[in-house]
Design a protein around this nucleic acid. Structure first.
Lengths: 218, 218
DNA sequence: CGCAACAAACCGACCGGTCGGCCGGTAAAA
DNA sequence: TTTTACCGGCCGACCGGTCGGTTTGTTGCG
């Protein structure tokens, strides 16, 4: 048994617990570094140091550097598939598209809390040619379809949406524009880039998505 | 005078021409490498080799690696400010928002032709914390404003757009969603990610932006 | 014109330092 | 005792940047 003290009372850990803890420390350190320096510019030494472990130990838990990177994307995609992921909650519990503002706020929360993972997607696109994220985006329409079917949103939407408009397109479009808006705001660090504050921008986007930008009877 | 033969008749170049040609070769090589490997993972040796020059020569034309990177972003922002840039042409010569499909197609053309520069923006966000692109995005709303004023689009739009909706928001929103759509399609390499072909997606997005996703009289 | 004198373009070796990955050894858990 | 977590030195390759020296183009003077 090893004893570790973290200021608090001494903690006993089994071998499995220690191993898992190290794995998570490595992933946490790698997330921070990959998302701020890119993949190629982050060294395994950096990761080990940031994690407070030796380089040898990192290679004990992961076969190579790229496996660490893939592990991080898996973490993110895993989180996004949980029912309590803010976006999934907002989409399921409200009534689309009346709840567009709620969806916008959920996306805002996600980009804020997961900004490093969002950056990882850019890293993959640049340094791995999008290899690891292509499937995720390619399956997105189908995933929305299943989600909406599972939550019985189809019939309700059929009656509300304009004729000939697929519910999937409507939800996809709304999702994408909010992700894009908050990525620029939070990841790029540009405040109020629509020329108005965030809440006003979310309201205006929601309104255009619901009723269009043209005058109603023109 | 130097004589170079490129299969074709011999070409004479002044010192200034040779220098400029080398500078462009360096930038072209750097664009290719930075956009595919990231900044930190691209070595000045790689750039020199790709450009067909020596490393010493690269440092003769540029003081350091980062200046090369900034030079590439300058190139891109410069191109975007030209009146004949596809987006500017589409926005100026058509009638917004009837020409949304045309704007969509212009953005498609841009992302296709400038995909490596678009990737550079991601590289800046990840590896330079967005330092070089923040101003560009921060000034975007104001830039649209000036552009529309210069082309006398205000009054026309005032009569067409829904009450209380700012023309800038309308144009910004449309621009962003198209950029996002084609970035995923072209840069991420995901075909038909809205679940339908590109033209159908552009039409559907344009329609939602113009008339909204809700039934007209609901 | 010829040609010396200068400047700019260019090359490749070299610097201290870091890279990804491996491996032998140690100590603790099972 | 066997297995596993963990350490840190080691390898050849490569990093950004500098520098001494060579080639090439330009300029001015006779």
């Amino acid at each position: 048994m090893t004893t570790i003290s973290i200021g608090e009372p001494t903690v006993r850990m089994t071998q499995e617990e220690r191993s898992e803890k190290s794995r998570q420390q490595i992933l946490d350190a790698a997330l921070k570094l990959f998302s701020h320096k890119g993949y190629g510019a982050t060294s395994v030494r950096d990761i080990a140091e940031e994690a407070g472990l030796s380089k040898g130990n990192v290679y004990h838990h992961f076969p190579d550097k790229e496996t660490i990177f893939r592990g991080l994307l898996d973490r993110y995609f895993q989180a996004m598939s949980q029912p309590d992921f803010p976006f999934n909650r907002a989409l399921a519990e409200g009534s689309f598209p009346e709840n567009l503002e709620g969806i916008g706020n959920a996306v805002r929360e996600i980009v804020r809390d997961y900004r490093e993972y969002v950056a990882l997607i850019y890293v993959d696109v640049v340094e791995f040619d999008g290899t690891h994220v292509r499937k995720f985006y390619g399956d997105m329409a189908e995933r929305f379809n299943s989600f909406m079917k599972a939550h019985g949103m189809e019939k309700e939407l059929e009656g509300k949406l304009a004729a000939g408009l697929s519910p999937v397109s409507a939800v996809m479009l709304a999702t994408r524009i909010f992700y894009n808006y908050f990525t620029v705001e939070i990841l790029f660090g540009v405040k109020d880039h629509f020329g108005k504050d965030t809440d006003a921008a979310v309201r205006e986007i929601s309104r255009i998505l619901r009723h269009g930008m043209l005058k109603p009877n023109a």
